[in-house]
Design a protein around this nucleic acid. Sequence first.
DNA 1: CTGGATCCCACGCGATACTG
DNA 2: CAGTATCGCGTGGGATCCAG
Lengths: 141, 141
Amino acid sequence: MQDGTFLSPGHLQETCTGNANVRDCPTRQLLDLIGDKWSVLILLLLGREETRFSRLKQRIEGISQKMLSQTLRSLERDGLVTRHAVATVPVTVSYRIAPLGRELIAALQLMIDWAETRMSDVAEAQRAFDQRASGAATRFP
Amino acid sequence: MQDGTFLSPGHLQETCTGNANVRDCPTRQLLDLIGDKWSVLILLLLGREETRFSRLKQRIEGISQKMLSQTLRSLERDGLVTRHAVATVPVTVSYRIAPLGRELIAALQLMIDWAETRMSDVAEAQRAFDQRASGAATRFP
DNA sequence: CTGGATCCCACGCGATACTG
DNA sequence: CAGTATCGCGTGGGATCCAG
């Protein structure tokens, strides 16, 4: 078989393709953490600089304070970011990327690069597909 | 600032961190495609070999035929996989990874590797966090 | 064998109001 | 400022039935 031709022969394929339950696949577990609407965005922002809650809310257009709070809490629980509260009045809280989160960002880099350069191709493929579909539908009126 | 220390100084950061709307971030668009429950799993399987519908259903434990069909259609629409139907009786259909999908898998490789080695650390962080939380709750009964 | 059509529910997420 | 609590809706996704 042409297995090792394109894919590296690493252990990773074994784990996710051996008819295992989805929950046993680490990649799926990871996607459960960062596949949501805001996590990656927040992670990337915190990767650039330690940031306070209110500033995060400003910089992420469209996020509700509920989702910001909730997502930050998840990321903290996962060990990807750390929370730092200063007992001023009112209290000042900032979030910082954790070493594990820093690692994750680095691991996501290629994916991010691919998205930047190739999502336009995906969009093009979608348009072509939709056109073929609608064309096939109206070709015989 | 210590920007370039860990993160590459690529254009990617600009796009996702410039207070842009979430929908403008290619990374989020990509996660909208593959952040679902089954896409990556299917992509990885097809990365190994061209596979028929029924065989995919066998190898992916727990997937419903609705979700398999639906996910395959999405992946095809995105240009990540191709569909090949042979007009036998009954019809035989197989799915194959497309060049774009092959690229994507390669771009995900580091993320997959990270998940394989680091998700245990994430799980550990979660346990520690939960214990601290429950401990803080019951510390003052 | 390869799906499409329907029904249904759980849950992600947004809007709003309240607190220390 | 930095959250928590509550409500409601849209949708992802499973179960089941039907069809070419």
